[in-house]
């Protein structure tokens, strides 16, 4: 539903070509106060993370008795906390949860992406009765909060004997992703000139070969944007994991492990700090490497859930 929000890439060209309103406004606002405001906001937005990062490398005793800012007057570094969260203490082994997160994420991205691409193609380029009604229904399903579905879905999974397995998470995440994915990919496919498809059809290509040889290559940026968004959404999810994998640790992702740690050992900051950074290393890396796609995907899918 936020898909019409101007995407940065779309406006970047316009930006390059023109003198900007904000530039003028900014020049006039470039008082010491403006710089001051920027620095204050930037600090407020980085210090909390930085404090926990520093703490994750401090010895347990120091974390518990002095503030992380004393690190600068008394710098002691250790990797003990990270060793602890990887199995040395308290039955926590982030490595297992890390594997779980990956095992959950990969199918939960690939499955909805492939299915949505097929469906979006059908909606965009194939004529069949009841097409518009179906599309409208799927479009409307975007607004359903996943909370509404959780308990009946859990009961279904139990009756199918799937509860406590990765299948519940794969199926749930895939299903929840579909309405938005179909809508976005459909919008993208509609923008491809119909001449291309018609020409392929005249050459005798069917919908399968058009899908693979004409559509997919053009669709790569959209698939990447949505894929990254979905990956981060699943990786960072807590609610779905809690409902479907809450019973045991065997299929729980890192977010659930961290939330449980925070609940049961809320003052064990040496574990919490290191655990938190183990769980955010992946999304932050994805963010730093794929910032362009990441922003696009995020803009497109920000109302999901």
């Amino acid at each position: 539903m936020t898909t019409a929000v101007p995407l940065p890439t779309a406006t970047a060209e316009a930006a390059a070509a023109k003198v900007k309103a904000a530039e003028v406004a900014k020049k006039k606002l470039s008082s010491p106060w403006a710089s001051f405001a920027v620095i204050v906001i930037a600090l407020l937005w980085t210090i909390p993370t930085f404090g926990l990062l520093v703490s994750s490398f401090r010895p347990e005793r120091q974390i518990k008795t002095t503030g992380w800012w004393t690190f600068f007057s008394d710098p002691t570094l250790t990797l003990d906390n990270y060793r602890s969260v990887f199995g040395a203490e308290g039955g926590v082994n982030m490595a297992d949860f890390f594997v779980n997160s990956l095992v959950i994420c990969i199918p939960a991205v690939l499955i909805p992406l492939s299915l949505a691409a097929l469906a979006a193609y059908a909606f965009a380029w194939i004529d069949f009765p009841a097409k518009n009604v179906l599309f409208l229904v799927i479009f409307a399903l975007q607004i359903v909060p996943i909370q509404v579905t959780l308990l009946p879905l859990l009961k279904l999974f139990v009756s199918w004997d799937l509860s406590g397995t990765f299948w519940t998470l794969w199926l749930a995440h895939s299903t929840f992703a579909l309405p938005l994915a179909i809508y976005l990919l459909h919008n993208f496919m509609r923008e491809i000139p119909s001449g291309l498809i018609e020409a392929a059809r005249v050459d005798g290509a069917g919908h399968v070969s058009i899908f693979f040889h004409v559509m997919l290559p053009l669709l790569t940026p959209a698939l990447a944007a949505f894929g990254i968004f979905q990956f981060l959404w699943v990786w960072n999810d807590l609610l779905v994991a809690l409902v479907f994998a809450g019973g045991g640790n065997e299929v729980a992702p890192t977010t659930l492990a961290l939330a449980n740690l925070s609940g049961t050992r809320g003052t064990a900051w040496h574990l919490l700090s290191a655990g938190a950074f183990v769980s955010i290393i992946v999304p932050v890396t994805v963010f730093l490497l794929l910032q362009r796609y990441f922003v696009r995907g995020l803009l497109a899918g920000s109302v999901k859930g």
Partner: peptide, 22 residues
């Protein structure tokens, strides 16, 4: 400057909560 503000958006709400709880 934008990346600094945007970075919290990429991490999980759980991790953000742990950061602020601290």
């Amino acid at each position: 400057a934008k990346a600094l503000i945007f970075l919290p958006m990429s991490i999980s709400f759980v991790a953000a909560s742990v950061i602020w709880k601290f």
